[in-house]
């Protein structure tokens, strides 16, 4: 068991991190909530606090900010750091973490050679985590002030229409849809299911029928919904990489040889213009 210090943006994140860290923490971990300062300052505080509480392991979320702060803190502590971990464990006195490698082709297991160790947990591993989420908040120990000449001029929320990475259900379409006007059909189905709308790359990038945020795939959103319905999507690898972790995958395509059927739990070979209205009926009824 290790002494765990959580670094979280807020209480909700701290709870999720506590759950994921449970296998290695001997009891509720300590948690330092972000002070909202620049990452250099946060990292210095994190490193100092870690020393103060005698932590063996620092666990943060693998958000962009989380990674930055964790990496700088690791450097201050001369510690090893593993980002985007899916799970942590302790075996034979060694702290190990699993993370996707080579774009998700495999899952590697990494061991820390020494302590302290720094970890960031992949956001997809934090979402929907269930378990013991208790933690003990600690206040920050001020770190060394390096006196960097850097300031945040402004911070604005990004205007986004949808965040597919948080969606629980997604209805996605591809080139099987003939006209932009037909998106209305897909929208009706999505509404009936309480789902968000996604699309393949040609729809967003070439045809520009939907803004980029709706694009699912290696160059778009990587999603992990409970239900992913792919309409008229052939199933190129790049698209698959974006939705392969969905709990249930349904594919509808007129081509029985479309690769997407290999990746689907349920497949219907048919004309989406017939199947989609039929589905709406079946759901409504």
């Amino acid at each position: 068991m290790s002494k765990v210090l959580i670094y979280a943006a807020d209480a909700e994140e701290a709870k999720a991190l506590a759950i994921v860290a449970a296998p290695i923490a001997g009891g509720p971990p300590a948690a330092l909530l972000s002070g909202g300062a620049l990452p250099e300052v946060e990292a210095a505080a994190l490193a100092a606090t870690s020393g103060e509480v005698g932590a063996d392991v620092i666990v943060a979320a693998a958000s962009k900010k989380g990674n930055e702060v964790a990496a700088r803190a690791a450097e201050i502590l001369d510690a090893g750091c593993v980002t985007e971990a899916l799970s942590v464990a302790e075996s034979g006195g060694s702290l190990t973490a699993k993370r996707a490698i080579y774009g998700g082709v495999a899952v590697g297991e990494f061991a820390f050679e020494a302590k302290p160790a720094v970890l960031t947990i992949a956001l997809s591993a934090l979402a929907g985590a269930e378990g013991d989420s208790a933690y003990g908040e600690v206040s920050a120990t001020a770190g060394e002030d390096a006196g960097y000449d850097k300031e945040l001029v402004k911070s604005e929320p990004l205007a986004k229409t949808v965040d597919l990475t948080k969606a629980k259900r997604i209805v996605s379409f591809g080139r099987g849809l003939a006209k932009k006007e037909d998106i209305g059909e897909v929208e009706t189905l999505a509404k009936g299911l309480g789902a968000e709308i996604g699309c393949s790359r040609p729809i967003a990038e070439e045809l520009k029928w939907l803004p980029q945020e709706h694009q699912v795939g290696i160059t778009g959103a990587i999603v992990k919904p409970d239900l992913y319905i792919a309409l008229g999507i052939s199933g190129a690898i790049q698209h698959f990489a974006g939705m392969k972790d969905a709990k249930v995958i349904v594919a509808v395509n007129s081509n029985k040889n479309a690769p997407i059927f290999q990746f689907a739990d349920y497949g219907i070979v048919g004309d989406i213009y017939e199947v989609v209205p039929a589905l709406e009926q079946a759901i409504g009824g």
Partner: peptide, 18 residues
């Protein structure tokens, strides 16, 4: 400070029910 011990290929188990 960090070493990779090994890896596993996740099984792609999809039901493939047509």
């Amino acid at each position: 400070k960090v070493k990779m011990l090994g890896y596993e290929i996740p099984e792609q188990e999809r039901k493939n029910i047509m």
